[in-house]
Design a protein around this nucleic acid. Structure first.
Lengths: 195, 195
DNA sequence: CTTTTTATCGAACATTTGTACTATAATTAA
DNA sequence: TTAATTATAGTACAAATGTTCGATAAAAAG
């Protein structure tokens, strides 16, 4: 599929667009990936276009566009967590949530709210919550937690009589004591709802 | 400041980058804004660069970058509506909400929820709602409405015994009958909350 | 009514840039 | 081994493109 050289070219194009704001020329690619001939680059470019990684307009300078490059600050949206799968596994990936904020892409994921256990906190079924994995939720925060490494849930966390609990915002649900089966994913920092 | 021609050029550059993914050439700008000479465009380009609207690299094709260009699909956030001011007046503008969706920028605005009258619908104080001005809210929808041309409010709209009402989602508030003092701004299509 | 500033044009020039063609290695498949 | 595919180089060309210079109009300022 994508050869080493092609990956190198792809990376350079992405980097160039990101840093400079425009795509490189064939000759600039030449230099960067140590190819002597522009036509060799053309050759690889065509391959990459056919493979669907790139796009360009004919006879127009610096018109290469990278299709695989995700939006600069998009966040992976993860759905249900299947048993045993790590949270970031491809299997759980259901989309991308574009996000504008500080550049801390790697620490952010989005989860889809399932059910109404947090309805009184304004988190409705099918809402998307953005989770910052670099922030451990502390008392009073809403956080995302992993139960038995299989199920993700969003709840308040708080201390009651010196014990930590996951606390739903819905009278019909019970508090869940935090034990070794429960690990924290991160803090919920924002919410997005499509109506 | 920015002359009419310069604004035209700026708009074209922004549009071109948005649609095609790369900046136009001097000659492309020429054609679009009906200037015969490339050097006239250069002249305006330099002005725009000095004013801080644009940026470009020397001797590099299609390297113009727009600095003022808001995020691709950002939406103006409007705060309180002051008496008599039209809804889109500068005075009400409190920021920009980046938005990724279909390209229907002009029809979208964002309003900050004030108070808890819609709390049972999951719209909390300080939440931002995105409003599509091109969609008239119909029965069952949540919409944004303008009361006496002075105050904006977000409510359910519905028909009760053949009369239209604005209906809060909070038992402590009363329904408001829709009369000639109330006009519709648009339908609430999404919600964003920062925690 | 001058003078200055702003805006426009035209033409020419030097690169920059995309593309095409041919020839050869290097690698892989048959 | 032979044929086919993949990767690379070199060269050449035409078009695209940024830039500069001089001349003029148009508008604004004095």
């Amino acid at each position: 599929m994508v050869s080493k050289k092609q990956q190198e070219i792809l990376n350079f194009i992405n980097k160039n667009i990101e840093i400079k704001g425009y795509s490189p020329t064939v000759r600039e690619i030449c230099k960067e990936v140590n190819l002597k001939s522009t036509s060799t680059v053309q050759y690889h470019l065509n391959k990459l276009i056919n493979l669907g990684f790139l796009q360009k307009s004919n006879n127009i300078s610096r018109s290469i566009q990278s299709l695989n490059m995700k939006s600069k600050y998009s966040i992976p949206i993860l759905g249900e967590i299947s048993a045993g799968q790590p949270l970031i596994a491809e299997e759980n990936y259901i989309g991308e949530l574009p996000y504008f904020g500080k550049e801390r892409n790697n620490e952010l994921i989005a989860l889809k709210i399932n059910g109404d256990s947090m309805i009184e906190a304004g988190l409705f079924d099918d809402d998307l919550v953005v989770i910052d994995k670099s922030i451990m939720p502390t008392d009073g925060d809403i956080g995302a937690f992993l139960i038995n490494n299989t199920e993700a849930t969003v709840k308040y966390i708080d201390t009651i009589e010196k014990k930590k609990y996951l606390i739903p915002a819905n009278k019909n649900y019970n508090n869940l004591i935090v034990d070794e089966n429960i690990s924290s994913i991160g803090k919920v920092i924002s919410l997005f709802r499509d109506m």
